[in-house]
């Protein structure tokens, strides 16, 4: 469970202080499918980075599974990120010199998991992403959709509870974009909390909960229960 309390994130730009996040209070339960929308500079990426522990709030508290993670030191935050959070980026961020399999393996390598265990997990990840025949290919030999699926496999290889996607379809054509979003949604249906930041209204509309941000504040937060689509495993709480 993600719980943000009175989160303030300020940046100094020249002699002006910009409030990228201005008193944000938000609770996201396990298994939710949340889209975050809003104009550029509204703070949606900052929110995602903060939830992903890539950024720290200027003030306020962030509880992840009832632990105050803002109090963790850098090393503990890294471990938390490795075990609980997966990132999917617009530009994929695959390491060009490594093969698809090696890219997927990276979080396990960083966690110090022995090679024999890693190989088995990478294999099943490749299998579930339909990438087995692409395992030994370098990123530049893969299509955009394949690259993003490699990135998703990498983000989920440590079996995190939260998957954060920042414009995951932004660099993809419509067909592979849809394929990627369906892959993400499948993961959500298996229980992962999915938070997608996007400009794309159509993509945003697919989620069960839509957050709209303007000027660092949550403008609206609507639960949109679609027919036939399950909501998270508990109630959505607005705070």
């Amino acid at each position: 469970m993600i719980k943000l309390q009175n989160i303030q994130r300020n940046f100094q730009v020249g002699d002006q202080i910009v409030h990228a996040l201005d008193d944000v209070n938000l609770t996201i339960n396990d298994g939710e499918y949340v889209s975050v929308m809003g104009p550029s500079g509204s703070g949606k990426s900052t929110l995602l980075n903060l939830v992903g522990l890539l950024d720290s709030p200027s003030s306020g508290s962030y509880f992840l599974n009832d632990h105050n993670v803002t109090e963790l030191d850098e090393n503990e935050q890294a471990i938390t990120r490795n075990q609980n959070i997966g990132f999917v980026f617009q530009v994929f961020h695959l390491i060009p010199r490594l093969t698809a399999a090696e890219n997927i393996e990276l979080p396990l390598v960083l966690a110090g998991i022995p090679e024999s265990v890693r190989k088995a997990r990478v294999h099943s990840a490749l299998e579930s992403m339909n990438l087995l025949d692409r395992a030994q290919h370098k990123p530049q030999e893969l299509s955009g959709g394949q690259r993003q699926r490699v990135a998703i496999a990498r983000a989920t290889i440590t079996e995190p509870s939260i998957l954060l996607a920042d414009e995951p379809t932004g660099n993809l054509d419509q067909k592979s974009g849809l394929n990627v979003i369906e892959t993400l949604e499948q993961l959500n249906q298996r229980g992962i909390t999915l938070i997608v930041v996007t400009h794309d209204a159509a993509l945003g509309a697919r989620s069960t909960r839509s957050i709209r941000m303007i000027d660092g504040r949550i403008e609206s937060d609507t639960i949109d229960r679609k027919p036939g689509q399950p909501l998270g495993n508990s109630d959505v709480t607005l705070t």
């Binding site: 992903g52 890539l54 850098e74 090393n75 890294a78 471990i79 990120r81 490795n82 075990q83 990132f87 961020h93 390491i95 990276l106 979080p107 960083l110 966690a111 990498r154 440590t158």
Partner: peptide, 16 residues
């Protein structure tokens, strides 16, 4: 730089 940022997002500590 990109790669280092990525490694951090994947859970590499500053020490790593």
């Amino acid at each position: 730089t990109n790669e280092i940022g990525l490694l951090k997002s994947l859970g590499a500590s500053s020490n790593a």
